[in-house]
Design a protein around this nucleic acid. Structure first.
Lengths: 204, 204
DNA sequence: ATTTTCAGCGTACACATGTACGCACAAAGT
DNA sequence: ACTTTGTGCGTACATGTGTACGCTGAAAAT
């Protein structure tokens, strides 16, 4: 039952990653984590950190990747759900709510580092967000909108959802339902607004 | 031409504040500023800092207040402008663009610390943003919407505008016009969407 | 069986940070 | 003229940081 070397290495790598994620909180962004504290919690010596990552920045990128991956998997689930007849808006929002409740730190990382101090992290987070926007843009285009309009809608919707997510992180349980309803309302505004303007435009 | 004591004190207080603001940048949020660096740039000894602020947190709150004030003054200007017949949406967006170009650090502070690590700063920033939302909500209500709907519209619009502002901070000059146009488009979606749904609802 | 590889450790160093303490000295108050 | 007040300074310290360096011991390769 002994560990092979690569198994062992992967294990402490995970320990580092998990330690870092677990140290994220309302009052601690990734940028404010210290190598020493992370390794302390991971149960290794500070200098051992370098056996796995070049520096904290590389760890950060790994975390963003990981969170992005988790998020995308969840969105895939959402897509299945509304391909079976659910409302795009309602299911998307509900899924998002689920994340912020289940594993807030995944979302926190994205939200904090989007406006964080490390450029590489910002662009990495941005890439993850763009992924959603592009995907949503494609979907909207298939419904008959031109590219520019579709992108504007998609971007606006993602902004709304992220805004709601941020509110959720700070909100008490009693406010959750209200935030969710409002977000849905706001997305509907965008959808029907785009539709109305689209119709009006094609009259000429 | 000598300085009275209170004049002198106010002057170095300003030096501290200005130093802090000037040190904000893409890669330096307020939370990552150090007392020593601020005082260094302000031209005083580190320990003299305490003659003016209890700690960095108090400085931060002062900065947020100051930025909020500046922002509100600008918005007053915007209101005058559209009371004389301009479109609410277009003028608001244009004014906002103006800030992010003229003094990006004002906006940066709000944007960074909204998701920053110091609770007191977050709530202070939130209060400033709420100020806009409430004001916009009032306006929308006067046009005939109920409170809930008005608030949803206002919040969505502010989210859109802030999102655009954030994009602007990172964008090149060539992209500015495009971002501005898109933001206006998105706000129109919300406005006409809310209108359409409002009409539809009152048919019954 | 011998050698190579390499994750992890301990020590050590240079550096930056916040801040406690007491002094100086000019303005304000008496 | 004398005292009080308070801004600003210099020194000093404890603490936390990233990381360079060399060693150990076990797994992997030979």
């Amino acid at each position: 039952m002994s560990k092979s070397r690569i198994e062992q290495k992967e294990q402490t790598r995970r320990a580092i990653i998990d330690a870092a994620i677990s140290q994220l909180s309302e009052e601690q962004s990734f940028a404010s984590l210290s190598l020493r504290e992370v390794t302390r919690q991971a149960g290794i010596a500070p200098t051992s950190f370098y056996r796995h990552f070049k520096d904290m920045e590389e760890l950060g990128l790994t975390l963003v990747d990981e969170c992005g991956l988790a998020l995308r998997q969840i969105m895939r689930k959402a897509r299945k759900q509304f391909e079976e007849g659910g409302s795009v808006i309602v299911t998307s929002v509900k899924i998002f709510m689920e994340i912020t409740e289940t594993s807030p730190n995944i979302f926190r990382l994205l939200f904090h580092e989007r406006s964080g101090t490390m450029r590489s992290l910002r662009t990495a987070v941005d890439r993850e967000i763009q992924y959603f926007i592009v995907e949503l843009t494609d979907y909207v285009q298939t419904v008959g909108y031109d590219k520019v309009s579709a992108f504007a809608q998609a971007e606006a919707m993602v902004a709304i959802v992220f805004n709601a997510g941020a509110e959720l992180l700070a909100a008490k349980a009693s406010q959750r339902k209200e935030i969710e309803k409002r977000a849905i309302m706001q997305l509907r505004y965008i959808a029907t607004g785009a539709y109305t303007l689209h119709i009006a435009k094609s009259k000429f």
